[in-house]
Write a protein that binds this DNA or RNA. Structure first.
Length: 298
DNA sequence: AACGCGGGGAG
DNA sequence: CTCCCAGCGTT
């Protein structure tokens, strides 16, 4: 890398962190009274669910189960109902398993090392790094979909990152993370926030971007996405996921176990419905009694 | 590396 | 209508 490029990267970090000082959203999991467990809960909820929908759910959740011990003891049915429509309910299941693991392995205290965090259910590379940075102020390399996009544009000079996370992106992000703990944590939060608020996927607000003058993508003339066409959009209508969603919605609202006849009314394709129900049972999201009635796990 | 997994709001 | 969202675990 040239001296000029190194200086540009350093300048990008600097302007983004400065911008963040005045632009950071006032989110409850950033408040001074937040707990490491609250941060972990927020990160799991934010895996594929937008901030605006997570915020009210997170507040209610923290009120009901403020500590890992609280969640560990809760009836799973209550947990799945509180998860509501956040999507991907397996995350709720893993979050409760995670709470139990924190209680059993770590005396109810969210661990402070990457290896211990990664060993928890539902905690992957991103979430472990996020907890280290945002709960404990430790240096870590936090790369989510926002950061990937910011780096792809500002440093890489392309419209969007590759469809899947690459080793080269991880290396770049690692090289970019400041050495100092607090500085690295600030950079992590700031780069994510820029991607969420300004450097957005579809219609980036370059006019309001602190990086605009330095942005490699802008300097290259804002070329279009080279991966366009290779990106597969997830089908939804008619998929097993849609059927699972319908069944889970029924189980959440039901006070009593759901009869097979009621289930049958949820989806016309019987074979697909049976497959979806079997999948939910397999995943631990539902249980079937002797009469074939379906209910949430206790 | 590729796939399955919810749901809703914005464009 | 299509696209996208603070990803993870499994194959």
């Amino acid at each position: 890398m040239t001296v000029v490029e190194a200086a540009r990267r350093s300048e990008v970090r600097s302007v983004v962190v400065d911008w963040f000082e005045g632009a950071a959203r006032d989110l409850p999991w950033r408040a001074p009274d937040r707990t490491p467990w609250g941060v972990l809960v927020s990160e799991v909820m934010l895996q594929q669910t937008p901030v605006v929908r997570v915020e009210p759910a997170w507040r209610a959740w923290q009120e009901q189960w403020p500590t890992p011990a609280d969640l560990a003891q809760a009836p799973t049915a209550d947990v799945l109902r509180a998860w509501g429509r956040l999507g991907y309910p397996r995350r709720a299941l893993r979050l409760q398993e995670c709470a139990r693991a924190v209680v059993e392995r770590h005396d109810g205290v969210v661990p402070r090392t990457e290896a211990e965090l990664r060993a928890l259910p539902g905690v992957g590379e991103y979430t472990a790094a996020a907890v280290l940075a945002f709960a404990y102020g430790r240096r870590s390399v936090v790369v989510d979909t926002n950061v990937r996009r910011v780096l792809a544009r500002a440093i890489g000079g392309v419209a969007l990152p590759a469809p899947s996370y690459t080793a080269a992106e991880r290396a770049l992000a690692t090289a970019l993370a400041p050495e100092d703990d607090a500085a690295a944590a600030r950079w992590a939060a700031a780069s994510m926030e820029l991607g969420a608020l300004v450097c957005t996927a579809k219609a980036p607000r370059c006019g309001a971007c602190p990086v605009a003058e330095l942005c490699a993508w802008r300097r290259a003339g804002s070329p279009p996405d080279a991966h366009a066409g290779k990106r597969r959009t997830q089908a939804w209508a008619g998929t097993d996921r849609q059927v699972r969603g319908r069944v889970m919605a029924q189980l959440r609202q039901a006070d009593e176990p759901t009869h097979p006849a009621v289930l049958a009314g949820l989806w016309a394709d019987r074979a697909q419905l049976d497959r979806a129900v079997a999948g939910l049972v397999e995943d631990g999201l539902a249980e079937q009694d002797d009469a074939g009635r379906l209910h949430l796990p206790r």
